[in-house]
Amino acid sequence: MIRKIFSLLVLLVSFCSCDTDDEKAISDFELAKAKWEKLQFNDYTIQENTSCFCGGLLEWTTKVINNEKDTVYFDDSKLYKGQTYQMVLDGAKTIEEAFDFIEQFDVTTVYSFDAVYDEQFGFPKSIFIDYVENMADDEIVYLYSNFTPTK
């Protein structure tokens, strides 16, 4: 009987002590996504910035209607080498698409991956990817700000 209780305690302690950063990140993701889904924002605008050592337009505002990209607003003078409005629209992410990107990203293929979520609404505020340790200029950051519900 004592042996069974001891085995049960060891098993319980091992489950309680295995809270890794990956599990915390999953938990943060799930909490944020649940918060976002509970609020049921279908119509909004959000600004997206991409920070990287890459070419192209790196900042725009996306208007979302019924959870679908409707329009992107940006400075036309910053289009890069043949970029078009359609290319920017295709590259812009709704908040649901940002969540999908985070959920589907294979974090085992990069050195570091981190997402930070808005405390009030749950949407991703930033997604940071560092592809190779100690390599300069391979990082990319997606920033989401100026969230405004439109209905």
Score class of each variant (00 low, 15 high):
Thr109Ser: 05
Lys81Glu: 10
Glu96Arg: 15
Thr62Ala: 08
Tyr144Ile: 05
Val132Asn: 06
Ala32Ile: 00
Asp130Met: 10
Gln83Val: 01
Ser17Gly: 14
Val141His: 08
Tyr44Cys: 06
Tyr144Ser: 01
Tyr142Asn: 08
Pro124Lys: 14
Ala34Ile: 01
Tyr73Leu: 10
Asp19Thr: 08
Phe101Pro: 09
Lys24Arg: 04
Ala115Val: 09
Gly91Lys: 11
Val64Ile: 02
Val107Lys: 15
Lys35Cys: 05
Ser17Cys: 13
Thr94Ser: 12
Pro124Phe: 12
Asp76Asn: 01
Arg3Met: 13
Glu119Pro: 00
Ala98Ile: 04
Leu12Met: 14
Asn134Arg: 07
Gln47Gly: 15
Tyr73Ser: 10
Ile140Tyr: 06
Gly82Ser: 10
Ser145Leu: 09
Tyr73His: 01
Thr50Lys: 04
Thr148Phe: 01
Ser27His: 12
Phe121Gly: 06
Met135Ala: 13
Val13Ile: 11
Leu12Asp: 01
Phe74Leu: 04
Lys33Arg: 12
Tyr111Val: 11
Glu48Gly: 06
Met87Lys: 07
Ile2Glu: 15
Ser27Trp: 06
Met87Phe: 03
Pro124Cys: 12
Met1Arg: 03
Gly55Asp: 00
Met1Leu: 05
Asp22Met: 12
Ala115Thr: 02
Phe128Cys: 13
Val64Ala: 06
Asn49Tyr: 14
Trp60Tyr: 05
Glu103Thr: 14
Trp36Asp: 07
Asp100Tyr: 06
Asp106Arg: 04
Phe101His: 09
Leu143Arg: 04
Thr61Tyr: 05
Leu8His: 10
Asp76Gly: 11
Val13Ala: 14
Asp70Thr: 02
Lys38Asp: 09
Asn146Trp: 00
Ile95Leu: 08
Pro149Trp: 04
Gly91Gln: 07
Tyr73Asp: 09
Tyr144Phe: 15
Ala32Thr: 07
Met1Ala: 15
Phe121Ile: 04
Thr50Arg: 01
Glu68Cys: 06
Cys18Gln: 06
Asp75Ser: 07
Leu12Asn: 12
Tyr44Thr: 02
Glu119Ala: 15
Gln120Phe: 09
Thr62Phe: 07
Thr71Pro: 01
Trp60Met: 03
Lys33Met: 08
Leu12Ser: 15
Tyr73Met: 11
Ile127Tyr: 04
Lys78Pro: 00
Asn67Arg: 04
Tyr131Lys: 15
Gln40Thr: 12
Gln83Gly: 10
Ile46Ala: 05
Gly56Leu: 11
Pro124Arg: 12
Phe6Pro: 00
Leu39Asn: 13
Lys63Phe: 09
Val141Gln: 14
Tyr80Ala: 14
Met135Cys: 13
